Computed example of a mutant assay.
Amino acid sequence: MPKRVLQGVVVSDKQNKTVVVKVERRFTHPVLKKTVRRTKNYHAHDENNTAKVGDLVFIEESRPLSKLKSWVVVQEPGT
Rank of each mutant, 00 (worst) to 15 (best):
K14A: 08
S66C: 08
H29D: 15
V21T: 02
F58I: 04
R26D: 04
Y42W: 10
Q15R: 13
L65V: 06
R63M: 05
G78T: 11
V5L: 04
K22A: 09
D13I: 00
W71I: 04
E76F: 08
K34G: 02
L32A: 11
K40W: 11
H45I: 06
S12A: 11
D13N: 14
S62W: 06
K17E: 07
V10S: 03
D55Q: 08
F58K: 13
R38G: 03
Q15V: 03
R38D: 09
R63C: 04
G54K: 02
K3T: 00
Q75G: 08
T28L: 05
R38V: 14
L56I: 12
V19Q: 02
N41A: 13
R38Q: 15
L65S: 02
S70T: 10
Q75F: 08
S12V: 05
K40S: 11
L32R: 10
N16R: 13
G54V: 01
S66P: 03
K22S: 12
S62G: 11
S12D: 14
F58Q: 13
S66L: 07
D55C: 09
V31W: 07
T28H: 09
N16C: 07
E76K: 15
S70Q: 13
M1D: 07
V73G: 00
K17Q: 10
L68S: 11
N16G: 03
V72W: 02
V23R: 01
F58A: 13
K33R: 13
V20E: 08
R4W: 03
A51R: 01
K69T: 15
D46M: 04
R38F: 10
T50D: 15
V9H: 01
V53T: 15
T18F: 05
H29K: 11
E47N: 13
K40A: 12
V11M: 05
K67E: 11
K69Y: 07
V10G: 03
V5S: 06
T35M: 12
Q15T: 03
K3P: 00
V5D: 08
T50Q: 15
S62K: 06
P64I: 05
M1N: 07
A51K: 03
G8T: 03
V20A: 01
N16A: 08
L6V: 05
V5Y: 02
A44N: 10
H29N: 12
L6T: 04
D13R: 04
R63Q: 10
N48V: 07
S70Y: 10
V5E: 14
K34I: 08
V31D: 12
L32V: 06
K22I: 01
P77E: 14
F58S: 12
P64Q: 12
V57S: 01
R37W: 11
V53R: 14
T50S: 14
K17R: 14
K22Y: 02
K3L: 06
R37A: 14
E76Q: 15
K69A: 04
D13Y: 05
A44R: 01
H45N: 08
H43S: 14
E47V: 12
V20W: 06
N48T: 13
T18I: 15
F27K: 13
S12G: 06
K40R: 15
V10H: 03
R63Y: 09
F27D: 06
V57A: 02
I59E: 00
V72L: 09
G8E: 02
G54T: 09
